[in-house]
């Protein structure tokens, strides 16, 4: 790693101030950023650790909305998001137990790794990304590979999930990294079904709108049977070509629908 300072602000305001410094970068749980730093692929002057900010932690269900602090770890979401069981189950299967002890929802969404789990939940749920100075709808938030609507120095303080009637996440893992080769989050709301796909696209998480339409009309695995996910723009790599990923999108969607609770 290159040399850098690490600061640990106690409040969002302090963190925002620290991030205004030269070459400052936010550090969530560090489960992706630290390995990146080890490869010397990033050279911040200061890392602003968000892990000591208590106001960014916690899970709170209120009415039909589940609000999760941006600094909440996957383990905490897994344990406390019982109001949204599909989301709790997703969190319980991110990485491994040690990753879940440190990794945070805000860190995952800010990084927007194309194979991460959380972006699919946020997009399929039509979640709202709350930052230190605004609220961003999930549909506007994800802008491609490792790219989001966040501005420089902007911090995800919370994520608000409308709790669906039914939902499920199906992850088909890449055998080495155990990230999703294809992950599909299906959420059924009173006004329709949303389907978000992670792991598959060169542009990161996306909605499979054909499936959403079919499932909104008929929420059953059979409704997807006649559809074909397009292989255009899907990832081709060692672990699967675009055609295979397209196929898995459909299989995982069917399974998510069948398992939705």
């Amino acid at each position: 790693m290159y040399a850098f300072d690490v600061t640990r602000p106690k409040t969002v305001a302090e963190a925002v101030a620290a991030l205004a410094g030269d070459e400052a970068q936010a550090l969530g749980g560090g489960q992706t950023l630290i390995p990146t730093l080890k490869q010397r692929l990033a050279s911040p002057a200061t890392l602003v650790s968000l892990t000591a900010i208590d106001e960014m932690k916690g899970v709170c269900a209120d009415g039909g909305t589940l609000t999760i602090g941006g600094g909440t770890t996957h383990a905490t979401v897994a344990a406390e998001a019982s109001a949204y069981p599909a989301l709790a189950a997703l969190a319980a299967n991110i990485g491994d137990p040690a990753v879940r002890s440190r990794g945070t929802i805000g860190g995952s969404l800010a990084n927007n790794d194309p194979s991460a789990c959380y972006p699919s939940a946020a997009l399929a749920s039509g979640a709202t990304i709350v930052t230190n100075n605004r609220e961003i709808a999930a549909d506007d938030y994800f802008q491609g590979l490792f790219t989001t609507a966040l501005n420089e120095g902007e911090i995800i303080t919370a994520v608000k999930f409308p709790v669906p009637e039914k939902a499920n996440y199906q992850k088909f893992v890449q055998p080495a990294s155990r990230f999703s080769l294809v992950g599909v989050f299906v959420a059924k709301y009173a006004d329709g079904v949303r389907v978000a796909v992670t792991g598959a696209s060169e542009n990161g998480v996306f909605r499979w709108t054909e499936a959403e339409a079919a499932l909104s009309a008929n929420f059953s695995a059979d409704a997807v049977e006649g559809l074909t996910a397009s292989a255009d723009g899907l990832i081709n790599d060692l672990h699967g070509d675009a055609e295979y990923r397209a196929h898995l999108i459909k299989v995982m969607t069917k399974r998510a629908v069948a398992a939705a609770k």
Binding site: P175, S177, L238
Partner: peptide, 25 residues
């Protein structure tokens, strides 16, 4: 079922870490 050291045509190892080289778990 899992492991392969794979080179591309330029001699770059594609499976050069546990992110791509699947160790049995």
């Amino acid at each position: 079922l899992l492991e392969a050291a794979v080179y591309d045509e330029n001699g770059q190892l594609q499976s050069a870490s546990y992110m791509d080289y699947a160790m049995p778990r």
